[in-house]
Amino acid sequence: MKLFPIVAATVFSLSASAALAQEAAATGADATLAGPGLTMGKAATMPLKYVNIQDSDLVVSKLIGVDLYNKNDETIGEISDVVIGGGKSVIGVVASVGGFLGVGESYVVLDPASIALAEEDGAWKAYVDTTKDDLTKAPKLDYSKLKK
């Protein structure tokens, strides 16, 4: 079984999303990214880079919906979202816990470093060192209070 930190899997997959935030099309060897707080030609811009992903890398679209398991291989939640801090890097993984068929579930944000990913028989699993009860008692994320 291969275990990967979630950060490595998601950082590569999110690098392409930065291009969507561009204010103007950048081309050529001197292209720079522009987004919130960054403008073309300012010192805060960074050079455009390309990334090669490997077969073992995981894109976020495949991560959403992956079940969370504890050390006893019991299902204790599901990954429902990924949090990007300041538009730059993954700072949290949102897990849905509790409830039944989407009713009564709540959301908690986990540190990406506390999650291990494993591919088993072609399917991904996420492992955390906690119990379902402790996860249910964790501080809740209220989606309605997030900026749109």
Rank of each mutant, 00 (worst) to 15 (best):
V82G: 00
S144Y: 03
T130K: 14
A116P: 06
E105Q: 03
G85K: 08
A21I: 08
K137P: 06
D55P: 11
T131S: 09
L146E: 01
G92H: 01
Y107M: 15
L38W: 15
A123S: 09
Y127E: 15
L63E: 01
K137T: 13
L3P: 04
S114L: 13
G102Q: 08
A31T: 04
I53T: 13
L146Q: 03
D67V: 06
K140D: 08
V103A: 06
S61E: 09
L101C: 07
V82C: 00
L135S: 07
D67E: 15
D142K: 01
E78S: 13
S96M: 06
D57F: 02
A116F: 07
P36I: 12
V59Y: 05
K137H: 06
W124Y: 13
V97N: 02
L38G: 01
A24M: 15
E120V: 11
Q54W: 11
K62S: 05
K49E: 12
G35Y: 06
A43D: 15
S144T: 12
T32E: 10
L135Q: 02
D81I: 01
M1S: 13
M46H: 11
V97M: 03
S15V: 09
N72I: 10
I91M: 04
A16P: 07
L58A: 04
A123R: 10
L110Q: 02
S89E: 08
T32Q: 08
A113K: 09
